[in-house]
Design a binder for these strands. Structure first.
Lengths: 131, 131
DNA sequence: TTTTCTGCAAATGCTTTGCATGGGA
DNA sequence: TCCCATGCAAAGCATTTGCAGAAAA
């Protein structure tokens, strides 16, 4: 627990938006001007590992940090300004209609990817356990 | 229509997998050894613009090209080997159960992002049309 | 001929790493 | 004291770009 880590956590907890690493960095620098960008990256990586935050990869390769809800959940991303909103929906059913109604977003597209273990790799994992 | 572009299209149409740029590059080089990586990038970018292919950004920053179905659709991505499968489901309802049944994937998580225009930017867009 | 594409290499942007220093427990 | 975190700078990786030559239309 170093002042830098406290500062990162403070920034993330006080913000309800999805900050970029740069934004976190700049926010911290007002309090701790000697903090380095590398430390922010390292701290965020640590927080990700212990499940405190989640990361949203943007199409340009950069990423945003979600410090509020580490569980995977739908996002609304504006194609124009890049704003990210948490889509507050309880089920995956009738999502787009629901999102249009609630958030007044014009939905243009989506990205839906599931992460899991394919049958082949499940076998490999099982074999490795046995060995 | 240059030989290089034909080659890229050929590779993409013949493959039913989700190739990385490198894989496309290597596949082409067997036929056209003088093709450069930059050209592959440029060609894929062009194909993306005209909607012929879609791009799947991986968590490591690299991307895979989907030459079969340009429409956004769910993917199954293996956490171990990185294999990408198109999830053949008709609706978004009861997805994970359905996916487990059909593809025998162990679903560990997902990424669901909607892209659209936020209310603010809709206003801006409207104003710009008027101006 | 005129435009567009190619290929090389350099540049870019975000992120990661190596390593020596320094603060925390 | 011992260890881990920090900060700087350099490296890394995927991708993009500038530009001159070459091919397409």
């Amino acid at each position: 627990m170093t002042p830098q880590r406290v500062a990162v956590l403070k920034v993330l907890s006080e913000s309800n938006t999805h900050l970029s690493i740069e934004e976190i960095f700049n926010a911290i620098r007002t309090d701790f001007p000697m903090t380095s960008l590398a430390t922010v990256y390292k701290t965020v990586a640590t927080l990700k590992e212990i499940g405190e935050v989640s990361e949203i990869k943007m199409t340009d390769g950069s990423s945003r940090i979600d410090g509020q809800s580490p569980e995977p959940h739908p996002h609304l991303i504006c194609l124009d300004c890049g704003e990210i909103l948490d889509a507050d929906t309880e089920s995956l059913e009738h999502l787009t209609d629901c999102l249009n109604d609630r958030h007044h977003y014009q939905i243009k597209g989506y990205r839906l990817d599931f992460f899991g273990i394919c049958p082949e790799c499940q076998k490999i994992r099982t074999e490795q356990q046995v060995t």
